[in-house]
Design a protein around this nucleic acid. Structure first.
Lengths: 218, 218
DNA sequence: ATTATCTTTTTGGTATGCCAAAAATAATAA
DNA sequence: TTATTATTTTTGGCATACCAAAAAGATAAT
């Protein structure tokens, strides 16, 4: 298998298994990678042979230690590049993902560590996602989804779980940028939509959007 | 054809045809890309169909206008990255080529132009090779090979035509870095080796090495 | 001019990564 | 439980990028 193919599978499996605990279904992988299910079955069989995943037929896949290590490495590269593009090269929050998607496959430890050093070895990327260190360690955090936030409490926007351009543009429009402080005003009984105060403006967030926004209690 | 494959062929043809004037033989392409001659024949046929080259059987290839444009674009990306790696990220002159070889395939105009802008839109890279601008224009120069230099004259080291690590390390050892001023002391009648003064030290350069060093009269 | 050599092309074959459609296997609902 | 639906797997096929060995074509040497 080509390194790029391996990397795309492992990264996807890691991201879909949330913290590498759950087993991932073939269909979700196929959807995420825009591949035919038949292709995914084949790919997973090969990754199993390469001992990057444990793949049980008609059940699902999970990463082995080796697969996890590789997945965390590619995620590190991706998030370092995103951060570098945004902070050092002036790219917008909504632009960096697509470019990082290509740059992440350039595998040069010295390069990534150099970029990380310039950035001050950050632990979170511009989307609020944690950046694994060189050994694959991830900073554990007490982040929750905005949809789980409590009324009257104060939070800080820490990240998103949907990286689509439309969503990121939507957030920017409402000033919900990373680091922004927010206060939960009300939660509608009717549809669970959230009314919050952000930079002195009242913003109404749908439950669907709130489910994609990561916040931290402050 | 995969974009990367196309790019590697066109870049190689451009580099081997020196200023895009000469016709390039299949064997030279095969050697440069470490490919079987059979593979090259096949590749060139496809590039001809795609109208990137004019390929005449058992004769050779040359780039079309479209091929030239693409070749210059990939060369621009390569040289901008080399310069950025060396000047902004602190990589050594001998390290940048290999990394740029991978980064060059990330095709994002905004990214390359941003890097170029940070570098002050340079016209030459750390190897002394000219960097095409966004439209593919290359700065023409009055550079000559060190092997063609005249006795007693003063020159400035502008680049190299051999990018191997061994050669670059050899140059660094003799302080023959880009921009260094040199004075030709003598040229040995016996073997044409050149004795020059560089940073107050006398250095002896073999004809083979002198043939790979580009200088400009000052 | 004829051999010898080198280069290019053709031929037949491999591995990878993909898909569509059919078959097998779960999962869910009635 | 049985039928329906959804998921997964198998099968057969295609395109790309490669190679080794044989055949054809060009170049050089005697």
């Amino acid at each position: 298998m080509r390194p790029e193919t391996i990397e795309n599978y492992l990264k996807t499996i890691y991201n879909l298994s949330s913290n590498n605990t759950a087993v991932v279904s073939n269909q979700k992988i196929a959807d995420r990678l825009s591949l035919n299910p038949a292709t995914v079955t084949e790919g997973l069989r090969k990754l199993h042979e390469l001992k990057y995943i444990v793949y049980e037929k008609s059940y699902g896949s999970r990463l082995t230690a080796a697969g996890s290590k590789l997945a965390l490495d590619i995620i590190r590269r991706h998030r370092i590049w995103e951060t570098y593009l945004a902070k050092e090269l002036g790219f917008g929050w909504d632009e960096v993902h697509a470019i990082a998607e290509e740059l992440e496959h350039v595998n040069n430890v010295k390069l990534i560590n150099k970029l990380a050093a310039i950035l001050g070895n950050p632990i979170y990327d511009p989307h609020g996602d944690p950046i694994p260190d060189e050994r694959g360690k991830i900073q554990k955090s007490n982040f929750i989804k905005l949809s789980e936030a409590k009324i009257k409490w104060n939070y800080k926007v820490m990240g998103v779980t949907d990286h689509s351009t439309t969503f990121l543009k939507y957030l920017e429009k409402h000033n919900l940028i990373i680091g922004a402080g927010i206060n939960i005003k009300t939660i509608e009984d009717f549809d669970n939509s959230i009314v919050l105060i952000c930079q002195k403006k009242e913003v109404n967030i749908s439950p669907k959007a709130a489910d994609c926004i990561i916040v931290q209690s402050i």
